[in-house]
Design a protein around this nucleic acid. Structure first.
Length: 170
DNA sequence: AAGGCATTCAACCGCCTAAAC
DNA sequence: AGTTTAGGCGGTTGAATGCCT
C-alpha cells in the first residue's frame, strides 16, 4: 500500500468559488499554513478537491498577488523567459513573484501571442529577443526595420533579468 | 435597445514526478 | 524494489463580460 487515498469522496463541488468558501480556505491556511492540501477539505468541511483548494489559493487567494494589467517591463520578462524556457509557466512565474503561473499563461495566450504575431510581421523577424526588445521599446521595431541585425544578442539568464529590472522592491 | 460575436479569465482535466508505504 | 497516491504543472474549456452591428 502506498499513501492513503485522496479526494475520493463523492459530492465534490465544482465551479466558481463563493466568498464563503474563500473565507474558510484563507482562515484555515492562515492558521495552518499552505501545504498538506489533502487535509484542507477534511478539516474545513469544504466540498472541494485538494487540488481545487491548492489552485484557488495559489492563483487567487495567496497574499502578495498583483492583479490587473501587466506592465511593458513584465511583458518583456515573460517574452524573454518564454523564449528561453518555453511554456514553463511555473518557472517563469518564479521570476515574477507577484504573478501566478495561471495569470502568466492566460496573459500569454490572450495577449502576447497575438502581439508577437503582429510584431513578427512588423519587424520581419522571428527572433524572440528582437521581439522582446520591440515589446518593451516600441521604437525598437522601427530600428529593426532599418538595421536588421545579422545576429541577436546572446540570451540573458533569468538572474540577469531580475537583477536588471525586476527589483520592484515592494 | 437587442442580439451576436469576440475576448478574458477562473477553474477543471489529464499527465508526470516525487514521496510514502 | 515495486506499488500507489499527493502534489504540481501545462493545456484546455466554459461562463461572464464587453464591444460591435
Amino acid at each position: 500500500m502506498g499513501r492513503p487515498p485522496c479526494c475520493d469522496k463523492p459530492g465534490i463541488k465544482k465551479g466558481p468559488w463563493t466568498p464563503e468558501e474563500d473565507l474558510i480556505l484563507v482562515s484555515y491556511i492562515q492558521e495552518h499554513g499552505p501545504g498538506n492540501w489533502r487535509s484542507v477539505p477534511i478539516n474545513t468541511g469544504l466540498l472541494r478537491c485538494s487540488k481545487s483548494c491548492r489552485l484557488r489559493w495559489t492563483n487567487y487567494l495567496r497574499p502578495g498577488i498583483k492583479r490587473g494589467s501587466f506592465t511593458p517591463h513584465e511583458e518583456g520578462i515573460i517574452i524573454h523567459l518564454q523564449a528561453l524556457l518555453g511554456n514553463k509557466w511555473a518557472a517563469i512565474a518564479s521570476y515574477l513573484p507577484q504573478r501566478t503561473d495561471n495569470d502568466i499563461k492566460n496573459y500569454w495566450n490572450t495577449h502576447l501571442k497575438k502581439k508577437l504575431i503582429k510584431l513578427q510581421e512588423t519587424i520581419g523577424s522571428h527572433d524572440p529577443f528582437a521581439i522582446e526588445a520591440a515589446t518593451v521599446n516600441p521604437e525598437f521595431a522601427g530600428v529593426q526595420l532599418q538595421q536588421q541585425h545579422p545576429h541577436s544578442p546572446p540570451p540573458m539568464l533569468p538572474a540577469q533579468i531580475t537583477s536588471q529590472g525586476c527589483s520592484k522592491g515592494g
